[in-house]
Design a protein around this nucleic acid. Structure first.
Length: 102
DNA sequence: GCCCTGACGGGTA
DNA sequence: GTACCCGCCAGGG
């Protein structure tokens, strides 16, 4: 895959404001590569632990935490709660999703 | 090039 | 709400 896509995804994710969340599919779409949600997930999984990217603001399309049940997922939830994003039952309300101005 | 895998997503029962 | 199923596309063995 192009480095362009990777770079685009990083920018989109970095553009998600604190207190808001988005989905892998939405990020891929915004990056100009629809149906590459899985690839976005792959990029996240390959991100170094100390990355400055707010990857924790990226969830599944239905608002469910992708890695719920795993250590990384717990960290993600904790970070979201820290940003005043309610995580109930391992999921976030659709109302907290960023509203992209297409 | 084939086959399996996956931090996905939408549809159906 | 839960459980399945199927389409999607790139990576890695």
């Amino acid at each position: 895959m192009n480095d362009e896509f990777r770079d685009a995804v990083y920018q989109i994710v970095a553009a998600i404001p604190a207190g808001k969340v988005s989905s892998y599919g939405a990020v891929a779409r915004q990056a100009g590569f629809p149906r590459h949600a899985r690839f976005v997930g792959r990029l996240m999984s390959q991100l170094p632990t100390g990355s400055r990217l707010p990857w924790h603001r990226v969830l599944r399309g239905d608002g469910h935490i992708a890695l719920a049940g795993t250590p990384t997922g717990e960290v993600q939830i904790q970070r979201l709660l820290d940003e005043n994003v309610p995580v109930t039952g391992g999921r976030v309300a659709k109302a907290y999703f960023v509203t992209w101005n297409d």
